[in-house]
Structures are given as C-alpha cells and as structure tokens.
Amino acid sequence: MNTGSDRPSTPAGDVQPRRHTIPPEWDGMRLDRVLCDLIPDQSRSRLGTWIRSGEVRVDGEVVERTSHLVRAGTVVEFVPPGDLRRSGGSAPIRVIHEDEHLALIDKPAGVVCHPSEAISGGTVSEQAVELFGPLPDPHAERASEHAGRHGDDALAGDDEEAEVVANLTARPGIVHRLDSRTTGIMVIARSAAAGERLVKQFAERRVQKTYLALVHGEPRFISDWITAPLIRDARQPDRMSVAREGEGRDAETFYEVLERFDGFTLVTAKPVTGRTHQIRVHLESIEHPIVGDTVYKGRRRRQSLPKGAPKMDRQALHAWKLDLEHPVTGEPLHGEAPVPDDLRELVEWLRANRPKG
C-alpha cells in the first residue's frame, strides 16, 4: 500500500524527517498504531514513549498524545527511532550556579531531562555528567524498591512514585523534571548527600517554584488558588485530568496576573504540589490554557495569536525561579533562569501591539 512516504535526499550524516500522507483507509487510526505500521521493527510501548517525548508532528504541529486520531490527507512527520532517532536534545544547558554539592542549570526547549528506552544522547542528565563528571542518581534506591514491589510493571502503585521512577532508567543528577518543551531552571545533585536531601525537600514541599506562563484569555481575578485533584486520564493514559470528587491526588497551584494583553495574559504560577503536567492542566481547567500547548488546549475554540506575532512552537511555559535550602550548608538558595527568547519576543510584541485606550 502506498502511504505517500517521502524521504528527501540529505547530505551524508544529516538525518531529515520522514513524511507520510495518511491514506483514506487509515482515517481515524490512532497515532501510535500508525507508527507501528510505518516502523514495524519498534515496539508499540517504545513508540508511545517516543510520541510523548514530542518527537512526532502532524501537519506541522507536535502531538504528544498516543491516542490522537489522524485524518486522511494529514501529514505525519518524524525521524525514526533507533539508530536514526533524534537524541534527547541538541541545545546545551547553561549553568547558573554551581558548587561541589549541586548545580542550578537553565534547560532549553526540546531537551529531555534524562534518557529512556526511546531517548538517549543530549539529555540534561547526560550533559550534566559531561560538565561535572560522575553524578549520583538521587532516585536509584527508590526505583529499586519500587521495582521490587511491582516487578516489571514500572507504572504500578502510587501515581507520583510511578512518575518519578517510570521505566527505572538511570538518571544521574536528576532531582526533579521539566517537560521537554518547557524551559527553565532545574537543580542538579552533584553529591549523594545533596541528592538525598534535595529529593526530601521536594517531597516535603519546601521548595518554592515560580513559573511564567502566557495564557489564552484574561482571568477574572488578579490572583487565585487552583485547588483541583489530578488523575491519569483513563482514556488517554499519557495525559492527566482533573479528578472527580473523592478521586485523584491533591494538587494546588497559586497564580497571579503580571500583565494583560488583548485576549492574552502573562501570569506567574506557583505549584505547591508537583504532579505531572500540573500547571498545564490547572490553567486549562479554569479556561485559560497555555499558549502553544497542543495537549491541554481546552474545549473551547481559542483566539489565535494575532497576525504578525512571533510564532510559539511549544507551550509558553518557563520555570523562572527556584527557592530552596542548600542541602549541605542550610543557607537559602535562590536561582533564576532568564526568560527565553521565544517567550520574551512574543510578550514584547503583544505589549507593543496592545490596543490603546
């Protein structure tokens, strides 16, 4: 069957995406099933992990949902996994602060935090090892205990625990994570003592995280709490959703308006808990999804960015500030990651083109 496969000629050593036009007989097929047919030598679970890492585009837009239904005539674009798969990132991390026990780094967009079955090379963890030498794995003991309890089912048991030790892959230095398409500050453990104490600080909710987000619409309040428990979506297990009463895990986010534009708002978001995709889901739940988020984009049709505005190729979410206690000295430690160019340029454009009066 001809699926419209097209592979442009490329210079030696330069891998270009494969593009497939979906034929009529594949209309309505799940994205992961499409990839299973197109790349039969890869397992469906591995392809699912790969999709959730933002490696696949449909009609030019990144799609992270394995259950996304493709339509006839749409174009699916990807670099195959395996020897030809894209690495965990090509942009370098930037060191904001370092000492013998930890480092604060600025993660660029498109860089995955740690290797997995489907991703390797260029991740935050691997870059950190290159910069600082051998690093401890702060979650190794917890992952081992989890594996002992649940065997091969790495995602069994407590949702938050499962998220931390998903796939049980080694992740030197990684204390916490950011989505691959979210930029900003992270703390890296350089000593075993620091790693253990940092993990404890995050677990006890003693770390203050401040994010910047550009959202659709204009919130009614200047600031407010979003208190809504989250649960893994039963129909789309790669997604999170707001749980019904009595279900899910507690989740709290405080947001505050920084600046209003015409149909868009720049806010800070401070998550008290650290659930998967928490800020993205919470802001969507109050009908103010993050600009550029292709997964949590709300039920209503949203106003598009004005003509001439800089394009946002990812969710407009940036981990801006981190305040914690130094795990060894006990001194307060503050770190701040500069606003990335794509978000800064979009905000400046909206500000300059705000209607007068």
Rank of each mutant, 00 (worst) to 15 (best):
T3M: 04
P11F: 14
P11D: 14
G13W: 04
V15K: 05
R18K: 09
H20D: 05
W26F: 01
R30N: 00
L31G: 13
L31V: 11
L38H: 11
Q42I: 09
R44V: 13
R46W: 11
I51G: 04
S53R: 10
V62A: 03
V62E: 01
T66M: 15
G73R: 05
V76S: 02
F78M: 08
V95D: 02
I96A: 00
H97S: 14
G110C: 00
G121K: 03
V129W: 03
L131Q: 00
F132V: 03
L135V: 00
G148C: 11
A154T: 08
E160C: 07
E161M: 13
E163P: 03
I174T: 10
D179P: 12
I185A: 04
A194R: 05
G195K: 06
V215A: 14
S223P: 00
W225I: 12
P229R: 10
L230W: 06
P237G: 03
P237T: 10
V242I: 15
R244A: 15
E245K: 09
R249S: 13
E256C: 05
E259S: 15
I279F: 07
R280E: 13
I286T: 09
E287L: 05
P289T: 06
V291I: 10
D293S: 14
L305Q: 03
L305T: 05
A316W: 07
H318D: 12
H318K: 14
G330D: 13
P338L: 12
V339N: 01
V339I: 12
V347L: 07
P355A: 10
